[in-house]
Simulated scan of single mutants.
Amino acid sequence: MPIVVTRDRSGKMKHIVTVRQHAFPIDEPASNGGEDAGPTAHELYDSALGACKAMTVLWYAHRKQIPLEDIEVTVDRDDSEERKGLYRLRVTLALGGPLTETQRQELLTVAAKCPVHRLMTQVTTEISTQLAAPAGTTG
């Protein structure tokens, strides 16, 4: 199922992302020419990692009957060397519930194995970009 990103002319840089039946705005902060009407593309990338870790840990805890009551994932970005090929993300997990230290460490290990973490660090992603046929023509 495709993800569609469409220009929203109500803002300078604003776009609407549609994923299945969900739609949300993306934008740039004013310092980058936008109006801060939504997260940036980089913030979506970073948040995908945090969301995946949260859901993976919660799924695992339920499956193993570990008494995890709450989870909060914080993702901090250091993109100061991105143009040199280094993009750093630091993830912090806050786990709530009557967990033993062994359970906490087990959940930390599981978080490092979430599918998005693996995509970002262990998989070669190939991207092809092409132009759609101009409106009013058949391809």
Rank of each mutant, 00 (worst) to 15 (best):
residue 3 I to H: 04
residue 5 V to I: 15
residue 7 R to D: 02
residue 7 R to A: 09
residue 7 R to W: 11
residue 10 S to V: 08
residue 13 M to T: 10
residue 13 M to G: 02
residue 17 V to F: 04
residue 18 T to E: 09
residue 19 V to I: 13
residue 19 V to S: 10
residue 22 H to M: 11
residue 23 A to K: 09
residue 23 A to V: 03
residue 23 A to M: 07
residue 24 F to E: 02
residue 25 P to Q: 03
residue 27 D to M: 05
residue 27 D to C: 05
residue 28 E to R: 03
residue 28 E to A: 13
residue 28 E to K: 03
residue 29 P to D: 03
residue 30 A to E: 14
residue 31 S to C: 08
residue 32 N to Q: 14
residue 35 E to N: 05
residue 39 P to S: 07
residue 40 T to A: 04
residue 41 A to I: 08
residue 41 A to C: 11
residue 42 H to A: 14
residue 45 Y to G: 02
residue 46 D to T: 01
residue 47 S to D: 01
residue 49 L to A: 03
residue 51 A to K: 01
residue 52 C to L: 06
residue 52 C to D: 02
residue 52 C to T: 01
residue 52 C to S: 05
residue 55 M to H: 05
residue 57 V to F: 03
residue 59 W to C: 07
residue 59 W to Q: 10
residue 62 H to Q: 15
residue 62 H to P: 03
residue 62 H to R: 15
residue 62 H to W: 11
residue 65 Q to A: 14
residue 66 I to G: 00
residue 66 I to E: 03
residue 68 L to I: 05
residue 69 E to G: 14
residue 71 I to V: 09
residue 71 I to N: 00
residue 72 E to Q: 13
residue 73 V to I: 10
residue 73 V to Q: 00
residue 73 V to F: 02
residue 74 T to C: 04
residue 75 V to G: 00
residue 78 D to Y: 12
residue 78 D to L: 11
residue 79 D to P: 06
residue 80 S to Y: 11
residue 84 K to F: 13
residue 85 G to T: 10
residue 86 L to C: 12
residue 86 L to A: 14
residue 87 Y to S: 13
residue 87 Y to T: 08
residue 87 Y to E: 07
residue 88 R to W: 10
residue 89 L to T: 00
residue 89 L to C: 03
residue 93 L to R: 01
residue 93 L to W: 02
residue 95 L to A: 08
residue 96 G to E: 07
residue 97 G to M: 13
residue 97 G to L: 11
residue 97 G to H: 07
residue 97 G to I: 10
residue 99 L to D: 07
residue 99 L to G: 04
residue 100 T to N: 08
residue 100 T to W: 10
residue 101 E to N: 08
residue 103 Q to S: 08
residue 103 Q to L: 09
residue 104 R to Q: 14
residue 105 Q to D: 14
residue 106 E to C: 12
residue 107 L to P: 00
residue 108 L to H: 03
residue 110 V to M: 07
residue 110 V to P: 00
residue 111 A to F: 02
residue 111 A to E: 00
residue 111 A to P: 00
residue 111 A to D: 01
residue 112 A to G: 05
residue 113 K to F: 12
residue 115 P to S: 05
residue 116 V to M: 01
residue 116 V to T: 04
residue 118 R to G: 03
residue 118 R to L: 08
residue 119 L to T: 06
residue 120 M to E: 03
residue 121 T to S: 06
residue 122 Q to A: 14
residue 122 Q to K: 12
residue 125 T to N: 14
residue 125 T to G: 11
residue 126 E to S: 08
residue 126 E to D: 13
residue 128 S to L: 12
residue 128 S to M: 12
residue 128 S to F: 12
residue 129 T to Y: 07
residue 130 Q to E: 15
residue 131 L to P: 05
residue 134 P to G: 11
residue 135 A to K: 15
residue 135 A to P: 09
residue 136 G to N: 05
residue 139 G to F: 13
residue 139 G to C: 10
